[in-house]
Design a protein around this nucleic acid. Structure first.
Lengths: 364, 364
DNA sequence: TTTAGCACTTGACTCTAAAGAGTGCTAAAA
DNA sequence: TTTTAGCACTCTTTAGAGTCAAGTGCTAAA
């Protein structure tokens, strides 16, 4: 009815917020009376009832059955989360504690991510997710190039594991038939056997140098190789605190829980979901916002971990749709920042190691 | 009373077997009548009742409540499993199928074990376990030796990851102070940077040679190094088909399921359980036979996978105490044999590879 | 030693009634 | 015009009573 922000009156927002938080807290439908008791508003239960009826019509609330209280709809949660974003972003971070815990787990990114996931799980009481990169296990065994037209060719890549993958490559300018042969030779010679983490700028420059006039083919080709490696590599998905799911009546239904567990285990689906983040920062998928259909009653919050601009892992949590978003957003963000700090610090250390050899006996 | 094998009359054995199998099948207490109907015995329900009462007194059966049928006790299952061993061992193995499936997953032991676990889970409909070795990730960065007395010294080992571990080492004969210094030097020079899989007999012999008169110190020291590496390495525990637990009413209790899931996730406890196999071959732990107390209502069947006499992995399944042991024992055994075949085949290949370099482009 | 028969126990299930929570609506109050 | 009090109505949850069926233990006969 013609209101400034979000089309909802301030009072409606307050009521919505109260319903969401009460429901997150208790898990049960929220009645008008209990909202009055929370003393956030100074009006009677009847007024609240009227407002709630309107909020329901607007799609922010739902009613399990006629004589029950209201439950937030997906839209309701979404509104809540969106209006929350500024709030949590401004929270003073007590990273120190998290930082310390993670740091104590030392260098290995693997371990840090796994610990972070456990930490996220125990701090929020939902199930933690960690995706650890699994670099360097996949290498190319053979690369075949097939010309499509003068602007496109297909790359057929056979990995060390025997998997065959094809990628279509578009070139920035037309190429000669010879160029493909040349590229193929050079790729097979230089790239095969290298893991994703070994294909660095110097190597790419070397390739471009070797290709001379046809250097323009190198970049798109390498990109394709890189993509395939990352696809196959996939990374490894780990959960912690799966049992915490059982703390929520949402998962009391055996059928539902079973199919959720099954889906979580089948890493591919979740990996895909989490590997293509809409935003670079924290992502919140509520219910059917997630493409995975068994997660329609769940929510997932995750954040990619970056190192030198490249995503090297993901941490997050999975829980019921009525997740304590405030707490979760804050926690995941803090942990994410903490990890970034640590691996940035580590980077410097690693480089020193690479040059200077193996003397890290500093702590004796 | 006073019978040849196992102290049970043939008829009691038959009845016990019938009860166990009926209970495995249906999950519910088994009454005397249903046993008569199975036509395995030619006597009346009253006789069965009498026998069952005796079997209960002997501890092989239990009664949930007065007017219910009987359920096998732990001892009952144990008897059943033990008397089963010969049976399943003689089963003609249709390894071929399993073999093929596993082989199609190619070389990596990791993948084979993971696939095997999935296979075990889907064939038996229980939760599959796989322990993958995680060799070579841990190496020693620095080793310090501290003399305790002339028969004992402490080894302080700092790993590449920065973890510090101490082991007390007892020597077979007294040593001189110089010997420790010498040993320390040699260890730091020769062992540091090597993964567990790199410390082979030739290297140990080399060490002993270098130590000359004090060669007797090498063996216990290396053993300590090895132990620490394996501790830290740990191996990685993976489950597949966790959701299958939910197929069994035994895990309908949320509390119970939750604590089981929690325990399974805390890898250490299960790793310890499974890494110290009583028998080299298939192990069956029924209920409280397992030292892990939340598994008192569960059973675990597992088999170590050996390569050159060294355990390189474990596969198995976890399920309710009324597990279909016949099927599980057979399946796990078959899969185990199959994996052994494959990795023995792979060994030859690997060796060739190590010598000849990196040309595995055989599959083009 | 086995079997038939019977009384008894006990959990599972069904049905009903009552309780409780919460709503929507109406009419009065602000 | 908005808010509030009051009330009838709806729907779920809970408790209790009664019935049912399964299965036992025991006794007496075969």
């Amino acid at each position: 009815m013609g209101n400034p922000t979000g089309g909802l009156s301030e009072r409606k927002k307050l009521i919505l917020k109260a319903v969401v938080e009460a429901h997150i807290e208790g898990g049960e439908p929220v009645g008008s009376k209990s909202i009055v008791q929370s003393n956030l508003l100074s009006c009677s239960s009847a007024t609240i009832r009227n407002e709630m009826a309107e909020l329901e019509q607007l799609g922010y609330l739902e009613q399990p059955h006629t004589s029950a209280g209201r439950v937030p709809s997906e839209l309701g949660y979404r509104f809540y989360v969106d209006s929350l974003v500024e709030q949590y972003a401004n929270t003073t971070r007590d990273i120190a504690r998290i930082n310390q815990l993670l740091r104590s787990k030392m260098s290995e990114l693997d371990q840090i991510l796994e610990t972070a996931s456990k930490l996220a799980s125990s701090l929020t009481n939902y199930t933690g997710i960690a995706i650890k990169p699994k670099i360097s296990s996949v290498t190319m065994a053979k690369i075949e190039l097939v010309s499509i037209d003068s602007f496109n060719f297909a790359m057929v890549m056979i990995t060390s594991g025997g998997t065959v993958k094809t990628k279509k490559v578009k070139t920035p300018m037309p190429y000669e038939a010879d160029a493909l042969t040349q590229l193929s030779e050079i790729l097979n010679l230089q790239i095969c056997g290298l893991g994703a983490d070994m294909i660095t700028l110097p190597i790419i420059m070397q390739l471009e140098n070797d290709m001379a006039d046809n250097a323009f083919l190198v970049n798109p080709a390498i990109k394709a190789v890189y993509e395939v490696m990352n696809e196959l590599d996939g990374g490894e998905l780990r959960y912690s605190g799966l049992n915490r799911l059982l703390d929520y009546p949402e998962y009391a239904d055996t059928q539902h829980l079973s199919s959720l567990l099954g889906t979580l285990e089948d890493q591919d689906e979740i990996l895909e979901l989490v590997s293509d983040p809409l935003r670079d920062d924290i992502n919140v998928l509520i219910g059917s916002e997630s493409p995975v259909k068994v997660m329609n009653n769940s929510a997932i919050v995750f954040k990619p971990i970056k190192k030198n601009g490249r995503t090297v892992g993901v941490i997050g949590v999975i829980g019921p749709r009525r997740m304590d978003y405030k707490k979760v957003l804050k926690t995941i963000d803090e942990i994410g920042v903490s990890i970034s700090d640590i691996i940035d610090g580590e980077r410097a250390l690693k480089q020193g190691e690479d040059n200077g050899g193996e003397d890290d006996g500093g702590n004796e």
